[in-house]
Amino acid sequence: MIVKENDTHPVEFKANADLTGATVRLTARTRTGEPIDLPCSIVDAGEGLVQHVLTGELPVGTYRVELETTISGAVVTFPNKGYATLTVDRDLD
């Protein structure tokens, strides 16, 4: 997923699981940086959709992103292999 710096809109991430009754945590990290917790909420539990609303404050860069879910006490991280990618590109102005 690619967004521009200063964007302030929702972005969605999908877990390949039903998230009914789950709690979720969305974490982003550059290859050399500290993890950043991104506030998120489940928007469609049955489809496994989680939404984060961009605040325009995420620095330009490429982030590896993972969604950690807790369902009935079991922690499952999505994607199961590798990471999702969020790229924040520089705005032209």
Rank of each mutant, 00 (worst) to 15 (best):
L49G: 01
N80V: 12
H9T: 13
V60S: 01
Q51D: 07
K4W: 02
Q51G: 06
G56Y: 08
T70G: 07
T30L: 10
T85K: 07
V65L: 01
G33V: 12
C40K: 02
D44K: 05
A74H: 09
R31C: 05
V53N: 10
R25Y: 02
P10C: 00
T77A: 04
S41W: 10
P59Q: 04
L49N: 12
G46C: 08
V88D: 00
E47W: 07
G56D: 05
V53H: 10
L58T: 03
N6L: 08
L49P: 05
A84W: 14
C40F: 05
Q51V: 07
L49Q: 11
N80F: 13
A84M: 11
K14A: 04
F13L: 09
C40V: 12
N80S: 14
A45T: 08
A74D: 14
P10E: 01
T85S: 05
T55Y: 07
D37T: 13
Y63R: 11
M1E: 10
A28E: 01
I71D: 00
L86V: 01
T70L: 03
G46L: 08
G73I: 02
P35Q: 04
A74M: 12
N6R: 11
E34V: 13
T32F: 12
T85H: 12
L92I: 09
A17G: 03
A15K: 00
I36S: 03
R90K: 09
V75S: 12
I42C: 11
A15R: 00
V53E: 11
Y83A: 03
T62S: 15
G21K: 10
K81L: 13
T62L: 06
A15V: 06
A15Q: 05
E5Q: 15
A74L: 15
K14E: 13
R31T: 14
P59I: 15
D18P: 09
A15H: 01
T77G: 10
V88N: 00
V76C: 02
V43G: 11
T87A: 14
D7C: 07
L58H: 03
G21A: 00
G56C: 14
I36M: 03
G56L: 03
E68Q: 13
G48M: 03
E47Q: 15
E47I: 11
